[in-house]
Amino acid sequence: MTRIGFYSGSFDPVTLGHTDVVARAAELVDRLVIGIGVHASKTPMFSTAERVEMLREETLIIADKTGAAIDIITFDSLAVEAARAEGATVFFRGLRDGTDFDYEMQMAGMNGAMAPDIQTVFVAASPAVRHIAANLVRQVATMGGDVSSFVSPEVERRLQARFAGS
């Protein structure tokens, strides 16, 4: 039986915190589906295509190292529906702190009520990336700050290009 996990988010941009969760989740499943939530009410910094491309670039080495297949999809429905469509039996959710835990427990409860066949596994962020939040990375980048310790060199390049001449 193939173990399939589902990890969702906006990934705007992909941070070292995201790839930390991906790497550890990929160790636990045969196939990890990364779902990029696309919602009409949100205006992301990077287009959907750019976020898919960034995630593909960032996860190639992880897939090679872990042996897990890593697929990137987009979805505009509930995460439980997207996970179910992919055959996932586990949701992976990253936790940085107690605030994340409180929110993620509520989300796990809701997801569990809608999809009791899909378990939620919390992945505690590694200490080196625990402080990283994509919204803060966007803010620092927007103001011309150094984001090199929060994102990969390729994502940093994309952020710099986005704000060049701002």
Rank of each mutant, 00 (worst) to 15 (best):
A40F: 02
R93Y: 00
D100F: 12
A63C: 04
F46G: 02
F11N: 02
H131I: 00
E53T: 11
A128Q: 11
A88D: 14
D76R: 04
D12C: 04
G109C: 09
G87Y: 06
D102E: 15
E81S: 12
F150H: 13
A85Y: 04
E81P: 04
G144D: 11
P116Y: 12
G9P: 03
D64T: 03
T142M: 10
E156D: 15
D102T: 15
R157S: 14
M1T: 10
F11G: 02
M54F: 15
G17M: 04
D71Q: 13
A26T: 08
L159Q: 09
T66H: 07
G144Y: 08
A85L: 08
R3T: 14
P127M: 06
E104L: 05
A68K: 04
E104T: 00
D100S: 10
V151G: 12
A108Q: 12
A164N: 09
D71A: 14
T120M: 03
R3D: 14
A63Q: 03
S126P: 02
L136E: 06
A88W: 14
A113L: 11
V14C: 03
K65D: 12
H131F: 05
M45L: 15
G37D: 02
S148F: 06
A69Q: 07
R84T: 15
N111P: 06
G17F: 04
S126M: 05
A68Y: 03
V29K: 09
N111D: 10
M110W: 10
D64C: 02
D64I: 01
S8K: 03
F91H: 06
M114G: 10
V151M: 09
G98N: 08
A23V: 03
G35K: 05
A134K: 08
V21Q: 06
Y7V: 00
T89W: 05
T48W: 02
A40E: 12
A79M: 07
M110N: 10
S152D: 11
